[in-house]
Amino acid sequence: MSVKVEVIEGGVPHQKIMIAGLVSTLVCLYLTYLNVLTNTEMFSFFGGLAVIAALIWGSHTIKVLCSYGIGTGVPSAGMIAFGSGVMAMLLATKFGVIAGIPAAPIVATILAAVIGFILGYVSNNILNMKIPAMVQALTEMSIVGALTLMGFSALITGGFTFAGLTTSKITVMGMTLLTHQNSFLGGCLIAVAFLLGAIAIQHPFNATLGPGWKQDRMLMLTAECGFLSMLAAAIMSFAFISIGSAVIALVIAVIGWLYTYQQYMVLSKRDAAAWLDSKPIPDVEGH
């Protein structure tokens, strides 16, 4: 269907969210290279912030796409975003330093854009969807999927090189051994990261859509979902990075989640027709 069912009334235009999302995600991903420069793992939490920036951008893209009533449900958009993004992300991890600059995030962006563009062409023209926003939306979502997974891998393991994601060190009785089984890819933690991201990206619009849709409320819910995913990923990161670094990420995730949850409740009360604080089981008084 090519008629837009809902229109964006007020709020920040999508173009602005897209540019802000892309730039802040890439900046956060590059900030994780501070780990390499300072030879610590303290800056892994920037990966989590990259995840949240990418998710906020992605959930607004889903809103733009799904406003056309594609008839397949909102979650399918999140699934295709990560299905195509994981390919670009894994190939991009193979690219190290090009011309003196670490290239993986840029390569992931370009590769995901190419994959998303072709998938957009396929669905819009071959499958005859004829939705004006389709090609751009699938391109954006593929980039979001790739960068989100990259952010998760930085948060959990401290970096996103292919060698770093496939190896880890374990200490057995004072000896340091190189292992492949306990790594981000070898232990298939990427599957957990995949669904943590996919659920966080598709849930906000699915939960807030309808006549009372408000942009700030949806984006606040996205941030809340993002911080919740970051919390789970930060707990997983204890297995890979030093305890101090993992605690920093965990504390940031907890504080961010509490703040965004509280803000989301405020916005929900603002948009609700009426608000009644009730108890789960009403007290029955003297009868």
């Binding site: 399918s76 299905g83 195509s84």
Partner: peptide, 20 residues
């Protein structure tokens, strides 16, 4: 792990395209 992840990714892409 990588083959499984790619298989899942490819599966989701194909399933969503068919849904479209």
């Amino acid at each position: 792990s990588v083959a499984g992840m790619f298989a899942v990714g490819l599966f989701l892409v194909n399933a969503v395209l068919t849904a479209y």
